[in-house]
Amino acid sequence: MKAVHMIIETNDLTKVYGMDGVSVTALENVNIQIEAGDFVAIMGPSGSGKSTLLNILGCLARPTSGKYILDGEDVSNLDKVQLAAIRNLKLGYVFQSYNLLSHTTALRNVILPLLYDRTRRVPQQEWQGIGEKMLEAVGLGDRMHHQPQELSGGQQQRVAIARALINDPVVIIADEPTGNLDSRSGEEIMGLLDTFHKQGVTIVIVTHDPIVAAHTQRTIHLKDGHIDTIVHNGSSSHPIAKKEADYAAI
C-alpha cells in the first residue's frame, strides 16, 4: 500500500438553500476524494449542484451539513476570517472571466494574493521576483507590464493562472476556464494546465465541455445534487500511482 496524500475529502456534504420558507437541496450527501496530483473535472447540467460544490470546495461557502477536509484540515465550520486565510494560502482560483484588476499591470495582478498573506511567507522585497517568475512560467515574460486591456483573452487567462499559482496552493480550482475563449486559446490554456499538472499541481476543473474534461484523469458527473457517475479517462497520464478502488459513489 502506497501512502496517499488526500487533498480534498468530503463526507456526506450537503447544502440546503432556504428561500421564503421553501428549502432547496442543492447538494446531498456528496462524498469526493481527491489526492495530491489529481486532475479532476466536475460536469453536470445546470442545476446539478456543480456551482454549489465548487463554491464549497473553494471555501467561498460552507456546507449545511457534512464534513469538508482540505489538506488534512476540517474547514467545514471555519469563520469568515479563517476561510479567507485558507483561500489565500491553500487555494488558487481560475475564473471563466479571468477577473483581473483593470488598469493594473499583469505583474501587479499576479502578486495580488501575496498582499493578503498575513503569515508573510514571502517577504515583500521578493514579491516582484516571484511574480516575474510566475509570468515567465505561463509564457508571458514579455508582457509583465501590460495591463489586462492590452492582452488577449488567452493571455489574460494565463495571468490569472499565474496569480492562482503564486501562493503555491494545494489545489487549483478552475471554473469554466476556457468558457470565454476561442477553441485555439482554450486548447493552449488546457495545455498549460496539463503542464502544471505534470509538475504535480492538483487541479479541479468545472466544465460543460467534454473536450476540456478529456484532459483530466477523472470526470465526476453530478445530477440533482448527487454524484451520478465517475468516469476514469484512461488517456491521461498520472505521475502518482492511482488508487481507483474506493471512490464512494452516491
Binding site: 467561498l60 479567507a84 486565510a85 494560502l89 482560483y93 475564473f95 484588476l101 493578503y116
Partner: peptide, 16 residues
C-alpha cells in the same frame, strides 16, 4: 463588486 469578490476569493478578509 466583482473586484471585491475577487479580492475576497484570493484571501481578503472583511477587515481588508
Amino acid at each position: 463588486t466583482r473586484e471585491i469578490g475577487l479580492r475576497q476569493s484570493i484571501g481578503a478578509t472583511p477587515t481588508d
